[in-house]
Nucleic acid binder design. Sequence first.
DNA 1: CCCATAAAGATGTATACACATCTATTGCAG
DNA 2: CTGCAATAGATGTGTATACATCTTTATGGG
Lengths: 140, 140
Amino acid sequence: MPPNIALPCLCASFRRASRALTQVYDDALRPLGLRVTQFTILQALALTSEISQGELGHLLVMDSTTLTRTLRLMRARGWIEERPGKDRRERWLRLSAAGQKQLQRATVPWESLQDRLRSRFGAARWNRLLQTATEMSHGV
Amino acid sequence: MPPNIALPCLCASFRRASRALTQVYDDALRPLGLRVTQFTILQALALTSEISQGELGHLLVMDSTTLTRTLRLMRARGWIEERPGKDRRERWLRLSAAGQKQLQRATVPWESLQDRLRSRFGAARWNRLLQTATEMSHGV
DNA sequence: CCCATAAAGATGTATACACATCTATTGCAG
DNA sequence: CTGCAATAGATGTGTATACATCTTTATGGG
């Protein structure tokens, strides 16, 4: 009801936008029992095929110890397989068959939502948004 | 080490950017014992002077029950005062004197960081970023 | 006035997230 | 080779976040 007020803080603006986006993405994925956070990890693993936990943390700009618990949940659901690396401190991750299947299922509503938002913003602006967000993930 | 890879998902991109931004903002505010989440609430209360918990939730696109716990912490620190509304289900919030003081202190490093990022992106792009993020907080 | 429904928040529960600290490794200087 | 610093990840703790459910209060229809 209150017109959405501009926040002067870039971080606050992005966090707020993230909450709003998370709502719609989680809504779209809810029938699959999946949240966008875990969907993102499935997608990242599909893109990289195999990656260590630390490298995944870098990729997602997320503390690798945060991944410890999320990955534990996903492993319990059977979506992820782990093996130790040559460096035995490392854990190397990849999608299991069930994880690939779950990712495929989830990609359907995700793609619909992406298409909807892309046409809402227009392709040019959509691409700028993705690029700027990506840029902000390393630089700042 | 890995060049930051583009994520195809808009939500994932924004969440990742939010994590990166939160890192630098939290670093800037850490000497004050304040995180950007609570700083945002202080700032929102300064902007609105007085607001109900539900309206604050709308403003921040945040479930009002999430605010219950954050506000409890901030009230315990003495930064926020609450009073019941005419509608006695409501809680009306405003900054205490200590809250205004804390906001003032925190605004110094926050402003420096904002300036740094603004000059990094350029004013035009900075403004577009803020506007787009704000727009995304209602529309989507 | 009375009841049914809706709205505002509180509480229970689960996930997401980061930092401090700990353990197990690795790699390197000597 | 040995010992020590650095790294990968696990664990403890505290905050952030949402949803389901509950309680209290308001509101509207009879």
